[in-house]
Amino acid sequence: MARLTINGTVRDIDVDPNTPLLWVLREQAGLTGSKYGCGVAQCGACTVHIDGNPVRSCVLPVSALSAEQQITTIEGLSKDGSHPLQRAWLKLDVPQCGYCQSGMIMAAAGLLKKNPKPSDADIDAEITNICRCGTYNRVREAIKLAASGLPAKQST
């Protein structure tokens, strides 16, 4: 049994404590926005936040987490897709297949939290997620657009 706080809600989940957080989110909590891409912390498709820090949930057993820690998934990043990164992503039509994009956005959100105006080098260093469709340049542009402060409501 694990007690987890996911997107602000405390949940008791009946699960083997060795189960990686990714699979608890996907299979027990029903939150499939976080994706399985590699299972070995290589691709970042499974990125979620623990207390605001991006982590690769595919290698994090739930036994390592306490109920006090805040787990945020892509579903909890904003209520309605209005996080500045989500708006920037929409404006630039960043995704192709989209499979890596939850992880990309969560990694980017973690970056902006500690570094609101990242340089290209900061982005290179922090966004190490894999996108096989090749959206990197638009991901970079969208991070910068979000960092530059989007208008509260999009007007275009």
Binding site: L31, T32, G33, E75, G81, L90, V94, P95, Y99
Partner: peptide, 21 residues
């Protein structure tokens, strides 16, 4: 024109094969 399939890819709503229930 903007793609028709972007919004759900930004919120985790888009259902892929692995997500089917």
């Amino acid at each position: 024109l903007a793609r028709l399939d972007t919004a759900d890819k930004l919120t985790g709503k888009q259902i892929y094969g692995t997500d089917l229930k």
